[in-house]
Computed example of a mutant assay.
Amino acid sequence: MTPPQPPRPATELFPDSLRLSPKQREVLAVLQEFPAGARAAEVAAKLGMHVNTARGHLEELLVQEAVRTVTAPAKGRGRPSLIFQVRVPDNRAVAHEYISLIEVLVSSLGDPDHPDAESLERARAIGKQWAQHMAVNGQNWTTLDDALEPLFQRLRDMGFDPSLNEDPADAAEGEHTADLSLYSCPFVAGNLRPSPFVCAIHEGFIRQVVGGNGPVRVDLKPFSEEGRCTVRLSEPETG
């Protein structure tokens, strides 16, 4: 017996996955202010536009599956009204949910206030497995220069806002060194720092991205300076 198909990926409903015009995004944003949905007339009143114009935009959103319709309870005679409901999730709420879940999961590795070396190494191993699962291994990258650009792009796409500083002043003699400053973190909530196990997982992830046990060494320095973390990449100079 064939098992039932799972629900569709939530990422397909993210606004970035939908081809929406600026006006459609505006209508969608207003509709999100109505948790139980709204009639076209209510959306039109919020936007100061004619109800037929609002209904036209809502119907376009319906075609793109960004909204759904339900029938309002009948009141008296006439055709029942349609209620338009948003299907697009709140990306911030989704991120917060999974960040909280990950923080709970990594707490099983040990006491985050007093992490020991063994627990941190287990966290790094999880990060390496994560990179392998995502098929972002850099095993064909044999030099620091090979690894820099793809690593920069990966960290940018993950939300770390990296900035590159090649050959920093405090680089060790005889090494080719580069620093990636990370100016944002998906796991920072307000002024709360993420668990050191989360940082160790990211360090293991980055190590695998640049080639696992290859010549490029990775050293993640959480909160190295005000408002940033630093990833130091280094390899012995040749010649």
Results as ranks from 00 to 15, higher is better:
43 V>R: 02
194 P>S: 04
215 P>Y: 00
217 R>F: 02
237 E>Y: 00
78 G>H: 10
230 T>A: 04
70 V>T: 11
204 G>E: 07
95 A>E: 15
48 G>K: 08
105 L>W: 07
61 L>P: 00
32 Q>I: 00
122 R>T: 13
34 F>S: 03
108 S>W: 11
202 H>R: 09
190 G>Q: 12
43 V>G: 02
120 L>T: 00
167 D>A: 14
92 R>D: 14
50 H>N: 06
171 A>W: 01
94 V>I: 15
59 E>S: 09
222 P>I: 03
31 L>H: 10
112 P>H: 05
57 H>K: 14
70 V>G: 06
150 P>M: 02
185 C>Y: 00
154 R>N: 08
35 P>C: 03
132 Q>D: 10
151 L>T: 15
204 G>Q: 03
23 K>E: 13
187 F>D: 12
228 R>G: 08
163 S>H: 07
171 A>L: 03
60 E>A: 11
26 E>N: 07
76 G>E: 03
125 A>H: 05
191 N>W: 09
116 D>I: 01
179 D>S: 03
120 L>M: 11
233 L>F: 02
148 L>W: 04
74 A>N: 14
158 M>N: 06
198 V>A: 03
71 T>G: 09
102 I>P: 01
28 L>S: 06
58 L>Y: 11
223 F>V: 04
40 A>N: 07
158 M>S: 12
34 F>M: 09
123 A>P: 08
165 N>T: 15
72 A>N: 08
76 G>L: 01
84 F>W: 10
144 L>R: 08
110 G>V: 07
40 A>H: 08
148 L>E: 07
33 E>K: 02
125 A>C: 05
116 D>T: 07
55 R>P: 03
194 P>H: 01
76 G>Y: 04
93 A>K: 12
197 F>W: 03
177 T>W: 00
155 L>T: 04
163 S>R: 13
81 S>P: 14
38 A>F: 04
134 M>W: 05
91 N>K: 11
10 A>T: 15
222 P>F: 05
133 H>A: 09
169 A>I: 13
151 L>N: 05
38 A>T: 04
122 R>L: 02
168 P>V: 07
55 R>I: 02
141 W>N: 12
159 G>K: 01
105 L>M: 10
127 G>P: 01
189 A>E: 15
40 A>G: 14
